[in-house]
């Protein structure tokens, strides 16, 4: 998850507080020592209590797919040799869910299933890989807002508000593999959400930040989440 770290005119430096809430990270800003929920992006205690950090779009994929799609990418330099995850045992064990055991899991799917989570105001959706994978595009809605998830050229999944030119848009792949909307037949880029050709050329769909997350964690923070399977 990526957050803007400027709130009003204050630029914050975020550190790891060493505290956990709902089995997930609590961040602390060095400037005011307020405590921030990682998942909610909200200050839950301290001088900035009630403030929120704006979530910015990001995605998760493999290095080979990312670097191919973004050849000029900068990579965070590794100071030490890192060749595996410290947490592989945790990732691989379907029974391990948080260190204090998540208590509010909705038993709709296995707790360790990885989903793509999208939240907007009171609405939340969890998309399974199958939902996105079947056609590399999945339509859903967040309350009244039509939305779409797309697998990009870098293999990461992104979500967008499916609305342009004042109307709801349904995007589908043609048999030739071209992404078009059914209303205007404009051609869309699957990574940026920009219309490349057609009536809507130049229009950019509003991007909704997506989080790659375990189902147990997502359903614990968003118990009312819908599931797009």
């Amino acid at each position: 998850m990526v957050y803007a770290r400027t709130v009003g005119t204050k630029k914050l430096t975020l550190i790891v507080s060493g505290m956990l809430w709902r089995d997930s990270l609590i961040m602390m800003d060095k400037e005011t020592e307020s405590l921030w929920s990682h998942v909610l992006g909200k200050a839950v205690k301290g001088p900035m209590e009630g403030s929120t950090l704006k979530m910015l779009p990001s995605t998760q994929t493999t290095w080979v797919a990312w670097s191919k799609a973004h050849p000029k990418t900068k990579l965070l330099a590794k100071g030490e040799e890192v060749t595996n995850s410290h947490y592989q045992g945790y990732f691989d064990d379907p029974e391990k869910m948080g260190i204090f055991r998540a208590r509010r899991i909705i038993k709709q799917m296995p707790g360790k299933a990885l989903v793509w989570g999208v939240a907007q105001g009171p609405h939340a959706a969890a998309l399974t890989d199958e939902a996105v994978g079947a056609s590399d595009v999945a339509s859903f809605s967040l309350g009244e807002m039509p939305a779409i998830a797309l697998r990009g050229a870098d293999d990461g999944v992104r979500a967008f508000v499916a609305r342009g030119d004042g109307q709801a848009l349904k995007l589908v792949y043609t048999e030739a593999g071209v992404l078009k909307d059914t209303a205007t037949s404009s051609v869309w880029d699957k990574t940026t959400g920009v219309a490349l050709q057609g009536k809507l050329a130049g229009t950019k769909l509003e991007e909704l930040p997506v989080t790659r997350v375990y189902w147990f964690a997502w359903s614990s923070f968003y118990p009312n989440t819908q599931v797009v399977e």
């Binding site: 493999t62 290095w63 080979v64 990312w66 973004h70 000029k72 990418t73 990579l75 590794k78 060749t83």
Partner: peptide, 20 residues
Amino acid sequence: PEEPVMGVVIKGEAHAYSLW
């Protein structure tokens, strides 16, 4: 090659972070 990354693109500039 298969190392997982988090990636962002802001103002046309891409940054990637190894999840490991």
